[in-house]
């Protein structure tokens, strides 16, 4: 299985996002680097709007991710509720 990743800046906005991603993807591993966090996951990774909203206590638009996103890999599929990264192999 190939790995996908998402990398986010380390700041107040992303603290809850990272927490939500790790909770929704038990197989994911967070690597902290200076000023950034890289989350690696075998096969696929999902970012769920509802989990983030629960942690931040307000509505969240998944496209807000773009502000603090550093990089990602894998095929992207985004709906109003979820952003999924995956490889086909």
């Amino acid at each position: 299985m190939s790995k996908v990743f998402i990398a986010l800046q380390t700041n107040d906005d992303t603290r809850s996002i990272i927490q939500a991603i790790l909770a929704d993807n038990p197989h994911a591993i967070a690597n902290e680097q200076p000023a950034m966090v890289k989350i690696d996951a075998e096969g696929s990774l999902v970012v769920r709007r509802s989990s983030i909203e629960e942690l931040i206590g307000r509505d969240f638009d998944l496209q807000e991710l773009h502000i603090n996103l550093i990089s990602l890999t894998g095929h992207v599929d985004e709906t109003d509720d979820e952003l999924t990264l995956s490889w086909n192999t």
């Binding site: 000023a35 950034m36 773009h66 996103l69 550093i70 990089s71 990602l72 890999t73």
Partner: peptide, 15 residues
Amino acid sequence: FSAQSDEARHMTLGL
């Protein structure tokens, strides 16, 4: 990082 925040979109476009 500000440039990089656009990069995820660019990478996805490239793929």
